[in-house]
Simulated scan of single mutants.
Amino acid sequence: MLLWHTLATWFRRRYGKRVQKIPLDARSSCPNRDGTLSRAGCIFCNADGSGSGLGGLTLAEQWRIWRDKYTATDDDRLFMAYLQAFSNTYGPAKRLARLLDEVRSLPGCMGLAVGTRADCLDREKLALLAGCGLPEIWLELGLQSASDATLARLNRGHDAACVARAVQAAAAHGLQVCLHLMAGLPGETERDFLASLDWALALPIAGLKLHNVYVPRGTALAAAWAAGRYLPPGRDEYVDLLCAALPRIPSRIVLHRLQADPAPGELLGPAWAADKRGVITDIRRALAARNLWQGCRADVPDGRPDWYGG
């Protein structure tokens, strides 16, 4: 029995079957990497910008590799593209237009999720995304924290107000926005994380990704961790954070993720961050033991909605 509104549930209710997201690396850049804002990047960002490692291939080649892998075991599903690595709306609008043309040409592609930064969007780019013609469009924006002090520590290069403006503009264009939040950031407490969550929920968003902070190899965060200046949250601590967060989130909000997913070979610590299934099981059991579910302190206090499924 599921106690939160998963992306899988969202897709099955809309399309009647599973929808598989395929991660694509469009060899995008980032203003926080190319010197426009900084060359250091965010302190938690790895050298691949959370990419799939297939950035040397064309989008069509990457798509074919992943689609062949998934259809080998189950061909009764739909597929959508996920432009994941770095900031995919960075650069001129004509580059984004070319990317969208490539995505539309991918065989069997029914949707698109675009990962980017709030400061890499404008009206022209939002209009391109809204008008790309695919039935399922998600704009994924990294917020991480609503605290400007924390964002400065992370070397984000923008403030929370920038994110709020981007979300409002995207919603005005009819785009579904998924915000990313990180729990356990340097200098933050549970209260800070929940304050960021409440701030995000006041915006016209449709989805959330909640991430535990882990330490990726080769990052500024790794150096701080090695020097003893940063300690990532423990497994039980993160489960408790989720048990505090999920009840506040209205049932309409789609939870795209509840745990970060380290790339192979990048994780330095904590070791538990590699146990994705185990942590999800811990969250489910803790919620059930405490008689909690997504939205129980928001819009569905009387019981878990049956349509959560599971």
Rank of each mutant, 00 (worst) to 15 (best):
A161P: 00
Y230C: 01
A202T: 06
T219M: 05
T189G: 06
L185K: 04
A206Q: 15
H180K: 04
Y230N: 00
F193D: 07
F193C: 05
A171L: 09
C162H: 06
R229S: 12
A166C: 08
A172H: 10
Q176F: 04
Q168W: 02
P204S: 02
C162F: 02
L179Q: 02
L181G: 01
L208C: 08
S196N: 13
H173A: 14
V213F: 03
W199V: 05
P233R: 13
A200Q: 09
I205V: 14
D192T: 09
G187A: 12
A171Q: 07
A206W: 11
P232D: 10
A202P: 00
W199I: 03
L197P: 02
M182C: 11
A226E: 12
A171P: 06
M182T: 06
G187W: 15
A169V: 03
A164N: 07
D192V: 06
L175S: 02
Q168F: 03
Q176C: 11
L208S: 07
V213Y: 03
L179I: 06
V177H: 00
S196P: 13
A172V: 03
A226D: 05
L231K: 15
E190Q: 14
L201K: 09
L185Q: 10
V167C: 07
L175I: 03
E188T: 15
W225F: 13
A200W: 05
G187M: 14
I205Y: 05
P232Q: 11
L231W: 12
Q168H: 12
G184W: 06
R191F: 10
T219D: 04
G228R: 12
A161V: 04
L181C: 06
R229K: 14
R191D: 15
P216E: 01
G228L: 13
P204K: 02
A172W: 07
P216M: 01
V213P: 02
A206L: 07
L179K: 00
V213R: 03
L208Q: 09
W225N: 01
C162A: 15
C162K: 08
P216K: 02
A166I: 01
A164M: 08
Y214C: 01
R165A: 13
R217P: 01
Y214W: 09
G228P: 08
W225D: 00
A227P: 03
P186N: 07
L197Y: 05
A195S: 14
C162I: 04
G184A: 08
H180F: 04
V163C: 04
H180A: 05
Q168C: 06
A170L: 08
V177L: 07
W225Y: 15
G174W: 13
V177Y: 01
A223D: 14
L208K: 09
L201D: 04
P216R: 00
L181E: 02
D198R: 15
L208T: 07
F193V: 01
A161H: 10
L203W: 04
G174C: 11
